[in-house]
């Protein structure tokens, strides 16, 4: 394929160096997996796999650890943030591709991308100082009031609105992932061939009908990939939630309670873990998180690649 490759000794050296550099990516992934498994072997031996994943214990004094409270926190905040983010992100993508006048397309697209560039610690700090007081003073009491008489739903809003809780953390997380989802959805929408859309207009469809029945079905693979990618990012987000989630190792039914995610537990407790079992359990948590997010991201990538192949045909 490459006529001159391997003929020149310098070329051989240079190509080997570049090969080593690119294999570093594989090395990191295997290295992370290996190190996390070997570091958590003490906890794996002591608590097993099923027991660790299903135990709600988190007691450094008795040296008894389980991941369920952390996994629960991670899953609930991620799910809630996706529920809040997806409609807004799709709306943004629809606006930018189909509705907006041309002179607004650039600025709004750029603004969404800037939102993605703001570091997560800024989101977290803003959440603590600005959003959390607003949530506890206005939004959470309001939600409590309107849901007070609805059975089951009212369980979600029990307790005193403090602003440091699952709901606030999910709102911040949703603001963080809106740009990721929106920009992938926008790119997917843009790939819909104009001819297909024009055919729909020609038989009298309204703009919304074209979006609903042509653009979205055509680009659903890409949009779905974007959503799963955002899910993967939200699972591993640390600083945006560390400020406003508290660090509460309990499974709560109310969204107005503090909780703990895997990332928050790691951020708060890793540097302070004072015995081997404790530290090993934290490595075990990191391993669970790594596996969870790696699988999610791989699925996202699978869908995005599939979408790419479909469009390039």
């Amino acid at each position: 394929m490459l006529p001159l490759l391997k003929k020149n000794p310098v070329d051989l050296v240079f190509s080997s160096i570049t090969a080593i550099a690119s294999f570093s990516v594989i090395l990191f992934i295997i290295g992370i997996l290996y190190v996390l498994i070997s570091e958590s072997s003490l906890a794996i031996g002591k608590f097993g796999v099923i027991k660790f994943l299903t135990s709600t214990d988190w007691d450094p004094v008795k040296e008894s650890f389980g991941a369920l409270t952390n996994i629960y926190g991670t899953v609930v905040t991620t799910f809630l943030s996706l529920v809040l983010a997806i409609p807004v992100a799709i709306g943004i993508a629809i606006f930018v591709t189909e509705i907006s006048p041309n002179f607004l397309k650039g600025p709004i697209g750029a603004a969404i991308e800037l939102l993605a560039a703001i570091p997560s610690i800024i989101y977290g700090m803003w959440g603590l100082f600005t959003l959390s007081p607003i949530m506890s003073a206005y939004i959470e009491p309001f939600l409590k009031k309107i849901t007070a008489n609805i059975p089951f739903v009212s369980i979600l809003f029990q307790g005193t609105p403090m602003g440091i809780d699952i709901l606030t953390a999910s709102v911040i997380l949703s603001i963080m992932i809106i740009p990721f989802t929106a920009s992938i959805a926008r790119d997917s929408f843009n790939l819909t061939p104009a001819v297909v859309k024009e055919s729909a207009y020609a038989i009298g469809a309204t703009k919304w009908e074209v979006i609903k029945n042509v653009v979205i079905p055509y680009s659903k693979l890409g949009v779905f990939g974007g959503i799963v990618l955002s899910l993967g990012r939200a699972l591993g987000e640390t600083m945006a939630v560390a400020f406003v989630l508290g660090n509460n190792h309990r499974i709560t039914t109310s969204l107005l309670d503090a909780a703990a995610t895997i990332t928050v537990t790691l951020a708060n407790e890793f540097a302070e873990a004072d015995n081997d079992v404790y530290l090993s359990s934290l490595f075990y948590l990191a391993l669970v998180l790594f596996v969870m997010s790696f699988i999610t991201l791989a699925i996202a990538k699978f869908f995005l690649l599939k979408a790419e192949r479909k469009y390039s045909r």
Partner: peptide, 30 residues
């Protein structure tokens, strides 16, 4: 360049894309 179009290039490229989004706190523990 050297691995253009080969399977290994595609695999590393996909893995790198995944690595971009791997939780950064996990890299801290590593």
């Amino acid at each position: 360049e050297y691995a253009r179009g080969r399977k290994i290039a595609r695999i590393i490229s996909v893995l790198a894309d995944i690595m971009v989004s791997v939780p950064s706190i996990v890299i801290g523990t590593f």
